[in-house]
């Protein structure tokens, strides 16, 4: 246990796993598609925080975790843009975005 609280890797990893399971619980719990997209953003942020914490505490002499976190940010931006355009099309077609009632593309 180091002297300062923020020089301990376990706290960052715990926050990352908390974000991951908040996101998974949101994916199960939410009914609307936008709520599920918000949960996806939480999962991606947990992954980024995990990478940065591991990079800081395990191998502090290179910056690959930082680069991968920036790549995750780019993927999240592209994913949310595509997902929101699809959600808007679904809302125009069905007049709602309840994920349980969209059954036309299911089978």
């Amino acid at each position: 246990m180091s002297a300062l609280l923020y020089q301990n890797a376990d706290i960052y990893l715990f926050v990352a796993v908390f974000l991951l399971f908040c996101g998974i619980a949101g994916l199960i719990y939410r009914r609307t598609l936008i709520g599920m997209l918000v949960s996806m953003e939480l999962i991606m942020n947990g992954a980024g925080l995990n990478l940065i914490a591991i990079n800081r505490f395990i191998s502090p002499d290179n910056g690959y975790g930082l680069a991968f976190t920036l790549i995750i940010m780019g993927i999240a931006a592209a994913e949310s843009a595509i997902a929101l355009s699809i959600i808007i099309i679904i809302a125009k077609r069905y007049r709602h975005i309840e994920s349980g009632d969209i059954k036309e593309l299911k089978y």
Partner: peptide, 14 residues
Amino acid sequence: FILTNLKGDPHAVY
């Protein structure tokens, strides 16, 4: 996570 102690060096220059 609690049981596994992560062997990092918190005082390394990053």
